[in-house]
Amino acid sequence: MVKQTTRILARVFVGIMLLIMYAPILLLMVFSFTEAKVIGSWTGFSLDLYPDLFRNTEIVTAVVNTVVVALSSAAVSTVLGTVGAIGIHYSGRRMKTALEGVSQIPIMNAEIVTALSLTILFVYFGVRFNFLTLLIGHVVLTLPFVVLSINPKLQQMDPNIYEAALDLGARPAHALRRIILPEIMPGIFSGFLLSVTLSLDDYIITAFTRDTSFATLSTYVYGVTSKKGTLPPTLRALTTLIFLVALLLLILMNLRGKKREEGTR
C-alpha cells in the first residue's frame, strides 16, 4: 500500500518536472498558431506565421548558415578525431598521457575562455575573422568529443585482428580501412552526431570567432532579443518546427534502440 503511494507520488513528481521543463516551449508552440504580436493575447487561429518564417530571408539564411557550420565542422572533427584517436591509441605511454591530457583542456575549460583564447590568437597573428576562423572555433569545440567517443571502441577491439591482417599480407593502410575502421564505426558515428549537436547549440565561440556579417541562428536570436524584449512572432513558428524535428529524431532513435535490443536477444 505504502509502496503503491510512493510509486504514484514519484510519477507525479517526474510528470510535473517534465511539464515545467517543457512549459516555455509549449507556450511558444501554442502561440505559433496566432498572429498576436505578444504572447498572451490570442487573436484567433492562424497559420500565417509559418509562411512568414520562410519568407524572412534573414532567418532562413541564419538557419542555413548554422547547418552548414555544424555539418562542415563535424565532418572535419570526425576525420581529424578518428585518425587522431587511432594514433593516440597506438602511441607510447608518455605521448598517450600528453595527448589525452590536451584533449581534456577544451572539455574542462570554460567555453568563453576557449573563445577568447582563439580570438586573441587570430588578433595576434593578424588573421581576419571569416568562415575559416569560425570553422576552427567549432572544430576546437567538438574535436575532443569525437576522440572521447572513439576511444572506448578502440579499447574494446581485439588487437590481434590487425596483426593477423598484416601477417596475411595486407598493407597497413588496407588493414586500417578494412579492420580497424569497421570496428570503431559506432564510436565515429556517435562522435559525429555529438559534434553536430554541440555545434548547432553553440553561441559563445560563434560570437567570438565569426565575421560579424555572418549570422547563425544563435547570433541572430541573440541580436533580436537584446533589441526587442520578447521574441518576434515568426521565431515562435521556428521553435515549433525545431521542436518537432527533435521529437521525430528522438522517436526514431528510440525505435532504432528497440530494434537493436530485439536483435541481440
Binding site: Y22, I25, L27, L200, V221, L231, A246
Partner: peptide, 16 residues
C-alpha cells in the same frame, strides 16, 4: 531533448 533546441532560442523562450 530541450537541449536540441537552440540554446539562445530556448533561453529567450524561458524569458517569454
Amino acid at each position: 531533448m530541450p537541449m536540441w533546441i537552440n540554446f539562445v532560442l530556448r533561453t529567450a523562450a524561458t524569458r517569454d
